[in-house]
Design a protein around this nucleic acid. Structure first.
Ligand SMILES: [Mn+2]
Ligand SMILES: [Mn+2]
Ligand SMILES: [Zn+2]
Ligand SMILES: [Zn+2]
Lengths: 140, 140
DNA sequence: ACCACTATTGCGGCTCTTTGCGATAAGCAT
DNA sequence: ATGCTTATCGCAAAGAGCCGCAATAGTGGT
């Protein structure tokens, strides 16, 4: 089903602003901040308010078209929902980011489901820690 | 080793402001926001600036005396580092927060360490998902 | 007790994000 | 084409937090 149809089906409307946010997301490969999107959109259409971009990202998320992930210190990044799901490791020392297959996180998710009835979304927040490189440096 | 000594040892100084932040943290049982602390401190000492509270929490964190945790909102919560470590589950639907023993998260941490050399701090960010109660409601 | 050094403070200002509100404009019915 | 309903928008303001800077005040030495 097309995005437009899904918008209509949910009682939403297609606006210029929404289309622009959508297009910016298409072009952005991966993990962009709302501020990134706002900046790009406003480069050509300065009259569009940043808050409109934020609200549209939320709306598109409710439609299941985009998702967000939190990196260290709560920086929120957005990406299209049809991209391959994966986990994130972030080094608190050097800031390096690494992606890991979602399968790696599956055992924990299963345990949380079985033992606590909690359906965890382990890709929603990055896992913070110390990367291999930084661990080596500090142990010297 | 006393907090005062650790402060000295790291070339830091003990100030009235720092002592007040520390005391506020002692009194607060669990998970307080920087703004909470600032409000409490400023109730008696209005001349103390909120930014001083923020900076002191960071300083005390570098000393290993306090830590912070991220829940699903944009607010960071602080607590003493000597408290029992534990993981957090947050329901994205009803917002309920639940604590889980850190041991539950250990297997994943071990795997990340073994397979990626990554020392994960799985208590740093809450795990987001859907709690048992909300899952039942939506499946009816 | 006094000095010098510099960590820390209060303040002003700034960034990123969310929210309330009145104005605008999609989408539908006539 | 015209009007109506109400989703969405732009704007202003608030919330959370950070940062530069000049003034203040711990600390260690004399
Ligand atoms: Mn953090
Ligand atoms: Mn989130
Ligand atoms: Zn690193
Ligand atoms: Zn719930």
């Amino acid at each position: 089903m097309e995005i437009d149809d899904r918008l209509h089906a949910s009682g939403r409307r297609m606006t210029v602003q929404r289309r622009l946010v959508l297009e910016a997301l298409q072009r952005a490969r991966h993990h962009v901040t709302a501020d990134d999107i706002a900046t790009r959109v406003r480069a050509r259409h300065p009259q569009i308010d940043p808050s409109t971009v934020y609200r549209n990202l939320e709306a598109l998320e409710e439609l299941g078209y985009v998702t967000h992930t939190h990196f260290d210190d709560r920086v929120t990044r957005w990406h299209r929902a049809d991209a391959q799901r994966h986990g994130h490791l972030v080094c608190r020392s050097c800031g390096a980011e690494q992606e890991v297959p979602i399968g790696l996180l599956e055992p924990l998710a299963r345990r949380l489901r079985d033992e606590h009835g909690f359906q965890a979304d382990l890709a929603h927040s990055a896992i913070v820690g110390v990367c291999k490189a930084c661990a080596n440096v500090s142990s010297e």
